[in-house]
């Protein structure tokens, strides 16, 4: 499942996630689906950046600046991976302030 996340979307981690490090790889597990998601370098950075306060645009800008990635590539990576996390129930949209 893929979803287009608006730049203003703010995501937060759910309580429904268990996380561990295995052989240098971060593994997330949804308590709903039981699936494992392994985080590579960029995945781990996106996961780290999802904190319930930064919106998608801010995360893209932050990662682009930190890792010197092209804007289009960075935006595509962040929205695609965020959508996957959403579909797995590992993150949810944060309630509006």
């Amino acid at each position: 499942m893929t979803e287009n996340l608006a730049p203003a979307t703010v995501l937060q981690k759910t309580d429904d996630v268990l996380m561990t490090e295995s052989e240098g790889v971060t593994v997330l597990m949804s308590m709903t689906t039981g699936n494992f998601i392994e985080l590579n370098g960029s995945g781990a950075a996106i996961w780290e950046a999802i904190d319930g306060s930064q919106n998608q645009a801010a995360i893209i800008e932050h990662l682009q600046r930190t890792y010197q990635i092209g804007a289009d590539q960075c935006a595509a990576d962040v929205t695609e991976f965020s959508a996957q996390l959403l579909a797995e129930g590992l993150v949810q949209e944060a309630a509006s302030a």
Partner: peptide
């Protein structure tokens, strides 16, 4: 991968801690 006891051990430990903190739910 899913059945790897070493990967599952810390996940199970986290869940156990969560169950100790909160009222256990059937889920």
């Amino acid at each position: 991968k899913l059945g790897n006891a070493q990967t599952n051990a810390p996940l199970r430990a986290q869940l156990k801690a969560k169950l100790a903190r909160e009222t256990p739910t059937p889920e």
